[in-house]
């Protein structure tokens, strides 16, 4: 029988983590053990998560495919569905339609130096790829992570940052916008800090996700550092409904972000009509 692309898998929330004042992380497992066992996805792919009665919203699966005890989604409260999700507790039932969309070109990145630049909730998609690469560490060169947020309390995944800082196979830089008592890391906007760190574009790929304004200046900074359009990867966010290229909502010209994205290289973005 043909699969019903609109019928979610029922899932149970195993754990809820409050990340920041407006971001919560949900660790979920599919109720059907077969479906959970056979679930496979690639770093960067997203899912439609639903609270029945309120609706669906799109989130990246931010746990890596190398750690399949649960699927993790981080939800920033922005509207009706995300507010409803924020009210849920461990044991509650949600629906999941996943995986959807394309993925990071992690195969093409093998053997290269990797530069992650994440801002705010934009750390979520990067986390998937970062953990995936750490779990396949030998496949990749030097890995640099620059992660920034407005202030320390706006930083998601705070509980694992120390581990990332301590690892000697990962260069981690954290930054916040303005000085904050007790903060021992960098202070400054992400694009400026990036210029300070000045990763070499040589054999590198940069992957950047975050709010539009941060992306805009980060792209400029990367360009200044000598990164070519093909060496820069980012993700687009569009309002999505069906997630499978049918409902007609997420197109930019001939590209459907739900099918052809959310991951694009800067070179691909330049080919799209200007409608971000």
């Amino acid at each position: 029988m043909t699969k019903n692309i609109y019928l979610p898998e029922m899932a149970t929330i195993q754990e809820v983590i409050r990340e920041t004042h407006n971001i919560m992380t949900f660790r979920v497992t599919l109720n059907n053990p077969e479906a959970m066992k056979n679930f496979s996805f690639k770093p960067g792919q997203v899912g439609q998560v639903s609270s029945f009665g309120t609706g669906e919203a799109t989130f990246v699966i931010n746990s890596p495919p190398t750690r399949m005890d649960y699927l993790q989604f981080s939800v920033m409260r922005t509207g009706e569905v995300t507010s409803k999700l924020h009210s849920l507790k461990a044991g509650d039932q949600i629906g999941v339609r996943a995986p959807l969309g394309n993925s990071f070109p992690y195969e093409d990145m093998k053997g290269k130096d990797i530069v992650f630049v994440g801002g705010g909730i934009g750390m979520a998609p990067l986390r998937t790829l970062l953990l995936f690469m750490l779990d396949n560490r030998a496949d990749y060169g030097k890995i640099t992570l620059l992660y920034g947020a407005r202030s320390p309390v706006d930083m998601a995944y705070s509980y694992e940052l120390q581990d990332w800082l301590d690892r000697d196979d990962l260069d981690t830089y954290l930054t916040i916008d303005a000085p904050y008592e007790g903060w021992q890391h960098k202070v400054g906007l992400i694009p400026n800090v990036l210029l300070d760190i000045a990763p070499s574009p040589g054999n590198s790929v940069a992957i950047t996700c975050g709010p539009p304004i941060m992306i805009k200046f980060t792209l400029q900074a990367l360009e200044k550092l000598g990164f070519k359009d093909e060496q820069i990867v980012t993700t687009l966010e569009k309002r999505m409904k069906c997630g499978v290229g049918i409902c007609g909502r997420c197109n930019i010209g001939t590209s459907y972000v739900c099918m052809d994205g959310p991951v694009f290289t800067r070179a691909q973005l330049r080919q799209l009509p200007n409608e971000l």
Binding site: Y6, S50, G53, T54, E56, C247, R249
Partner: peptide
């Protein structure tokens, strides 16, 4: 024109997910 929206409706202990014509 084939675009649609997906919305949920509830009534007591029951509910439904609907798809409806949408308008670009």
């Amino acid at each position: 024109c084939y675009c649609f929206n997906i919305t949920d409706e509830t009534n007591g202990m029951k509910g439904k997910r609907l798809r409806s014509w949408d308008n670009c």
